[in-house]
Design a protein around this nucleic acid. Sequence first.
DNA 1: ATTCCTTTGAAGCTG
DNA 2: CAGCTTCAAAGGAAT
Length: 334
Amino acid sequence: MPQLNGGDGDDLGANDELIAFKDEGEQEEKRNVSAERDLDDVKSSLVNESETNSSSDSEADRRPKPNLDLESRARQSQLFQEALRRQQDGGLFQPSPYAGYSFFMIPDLGNLCSPYLTNGALTPSARTYLPFQWPLLDVPGRSAIRDSATPSHLVRSTLIIPLPMYPLAAGGFSPAALAMNASMSSLVSSSFPPRLVPTPQSSIPHPAIIPTGVKQEPGVSSQPGKSVPEVQEKEDERKPHIKKPLNAFMLYMRDERPKVVAQCQVKESATINQILGQRWHSLSKEEQAKYYELARKERLLHSKLYPGWSARDNYGKKKKRKRTKSETQLEGKT
DNA sequence: ATTCCTTTGAAGCTG
DNA sequence: CAGCTTCAAAGGAAT
C-alpha cells in the first residue's frame, strides 16, 4: 500500500509520505535504476516527439468537439488564442510539471482492460509505453459545465492537466484567495497551470463549489418560531458547498479515466475504477509520488483559500448514508 | 429522480 | 488510539 504511514494527523502530512516513499523505495529504486533511466529516455523522446507534433495540425482538430453553441465556440477560440500567446510569452506561465506526459503508460497489454489481474499487480518492467493519442471522448456533461471555459480537448491539446482552484463563489474569489501572499503566488504560478491561477476578474466557478440551489431567504436566521437546530440547518444549507480537495488517487483517476475509457471501451465508472485501482498499484513509487505531491499542494492551496474549512463541514451531509461493507456483505448472504 | 457500484486516500467520528 | 465511516470523481445500472 502506497499510503505508508497512514497520516500522523498533522495537516498536509504528505511530506511524511514523500519521505517514507524515499526510504521504502530506496532499495527498489536501486534495483530499477537502470531500467528507470531507460524509461526516462523513452519518456523524454516521446515527450519531445509529442511536443513537436502538437503544433499546428493539432489533434484537437481531429477530435470530435462537443456540441457547443457559437458563443461557446467563440469563447473557446479566444481562450485558446490567449493560452497560445501566453505560452509563447514564456516567463510567467510555466508548464505543468506533468505536462510532458503525453504518452500512454500501460501495463501488460493482455490485462490492459481487465480489473482482475492474475498476480494482483504488475511489475514496472511489464509496462509498455506507447505514444499517446487523444481518445475519442464523449465529453461528459458535468465536466463540460464545470470546466466550460477550458474544454477538455483544449486543455489536453495544450497538455495542461487541470488542477482546481477554489474560488469562494461563482462571482469571484475569497478574500483569502485575493490576499494570497508572495509565497502562495509562487506556489500557484510555479506548480499550477497558468489558466488555474485565479485572477480577480475570473468568474469561472470551481468544481469545488456546489451551489446549494437554496433560495436566498433574507432574515431566515431570525425567523421567530424556528428552533435553533432548524435555523442552523437553514444556515448550513445556504452556505456554498466547498468540496474536499482531491487525494492522490482521485487526481490520478481524473487524468487516467479518459484513457481507460478510450482503451477499454467501457463507460461504467465502477469497472473503470477497478482498472484504475490496479494500475495505481502497478505504478512506480516515483510515479505515485508525483500524485501525492500534487495532492499535497491541493490540500495546501485549499487550506489557504479556506482557512476555516474542515472536512467536518461536509461530513454526513450527503442525502443518504452510504451502505457499509458489512451491510453489503450481510445483504449478500441473505 | 435518486441511489448504488467501485476505487484509494484523507479526515472525522466512535468506543 | 484503533477501527470504522464519510466523501471526494464518474457515469451506467438499478430502483
